[in-house]
Design a protein around this nucleic acid. Structure first.
Lengths: 237, 237
DNA sequence: GCTTTCCGGTGATTCAAATCACAATCGGGT
DNA sequence: ACCCGATTGTGATTTGAATCACCGGAAAGC
């Protein structure tokens, strides 16, 4: 499979067996070598916390494997999950670049491996490699865009049902079955789904029931089967 | 007043009589000269639209004077105002850098002047001036942080009353009266305030009544007087 | 000056989702 | 196989804000 790319991606990416194009891929050899010098790799178990909202940024984490839950909480204990990050994502970039405190808490929900790059080493690196700075700027823009999606989801979607449908649509893999069906491993609890769409656990439970009744989905153990993409799309419109 | 700064800021900023430190200030003379070559200045009346959500980015606008309302809407006509931009702000930066469509609509709510920098000229400029790229990256991070504030406001603040209090607090000038009082020119309609905090016009109207009754504020024509910062802070906590 | 449109205030009513309260079920550990 | 804590399902009740409906008043246009 890898061979199809013509050359081994490990040759020109930050050492991390990630297939997708990401921030630290396709760099010039000297830049890449420098990056590999300043990074350090570690393995994190489930529930490990990479960083906490409000902390001074120590640096960025490039996720190689595993899944990370990004969330932010109010002082009263209410929590929103803003994103589930996967392999290839760079975590804590904005905080590190702007020297604001981390704006989210990052917690592993599936164990995995990540490269850590300390803040000052990264900034020094970026100052020396202007071309990478532009890449970073583009990555940040893209993050910003994702945040706006979240804002739109929270502010413009009125009913929990619609938000739930949007969430399910976002779970479709790029390459789904032609008939609009998809099978997804459900790793989140109802509580966590509630925190993603800004509602309560009970409401999510009822949404699952409703959607099952309407033939929109099916649950088999931890497998979630989505039955019709078009029907979901009709709900969000 | 300006003299207090030691040198005329027009000497080292993108030509635009803005006092604050902003993105295109304190650049190297050659970079600055290049910027002034590629920018063009225009005056915009009230209700002029700089760009519309979903359009391909044409470039960035550096606001010199006036105020701009940034908003995003759903297909059903619901609208959120995400920010009121003021002099010194750079509009459309993320879209321009990442080549995503503009994520908001920018409309003048107070007439003013802005410098426009076309997309390709800006990108060429950034490639040639790596040091400015890092500044841009920092600006983008900062924008991102602001977007997160918005997410927190929308998702973690339960009642309209609390959101309203948060909004009022954000209107305090940096240097307010010691006793927690402040006078603010109210340029937004209740409808617009509703769109900022995600509620309805009627609810905003009632909030004004409630807050007046509770001695938190006072309205005299278009002047809004906030009576107690600490009382407002108690409400949001 | 008069009309028309936009904006702001306030009641009455409705309604969807939060809250409360349990019961049922699942899954991992011993 | 059994136990226990975490997770899920679902009814009954409450509630806070949206919606509907209308009026007064200010500002803008003719």
């Amino acid at each position: 499979m890898r061979a199809a790319y013509g050359l081994n991606i490990l040759d020109n990416c930050l050492a991390c067996p990630v297939r997708e194009e990401h921030l630290f891929c396709n760099l010039s050899p000297p830049a890449l070598q420098k990056l590999n010098e300043i990074k350090s790799t570690a393995v994190y178990p489930k529930e490990a916390v990479l960083f906490i909202e409000g902390q001074q940024p120590r640096g960025v984490f490039v996720l190689c494997t595993g899944k990370v839950k990004l969330s932010t909480s109010s002082s009263e204990g209410k929590t929103v999950i803003t994103k589930i990050s996967e392999a290839g994502d760079v975590l804590g970039l904005n905080a590190t670049i702007s020297d604001h405190p981390y704006e989210v808490t990052a917690e592993m929900i599936e164990p995995g491996q990540a490269n850590f790059i300390p803040r000052d080493a990264l900034l020094r690196f970026l100052r020396e490699h202007g071309e990478v700075s532009l890449r970073v700027a583009q990555q940040l823009s893209s993050n910003y865009y994702t945040a706006y999606e979240e804002i739109r989801m929270l502010a413009l979607t009125s009913s929990p049902g619609e938000k739930f449908a949007k969430l399910l649509l976002s779970w479709y893999p790029e390459k789904e079955h032609a008939n609009g069906q998809a099978q997804i491993k459900l790793t989140l609890t109802h509580e966590e789904i509630a925190e993603m769409i800004g509602t309560t656990r009970e409401t999510v439970s009822r949404l699952f029931s409703d959607f099952k009744k309407k033939q929109l989905l099916q649950v088999k153990g931890s497998n979630l089967i989505l039955r019709s993409k078009s029907a979901l799309q009709k709900m969000v419109h």
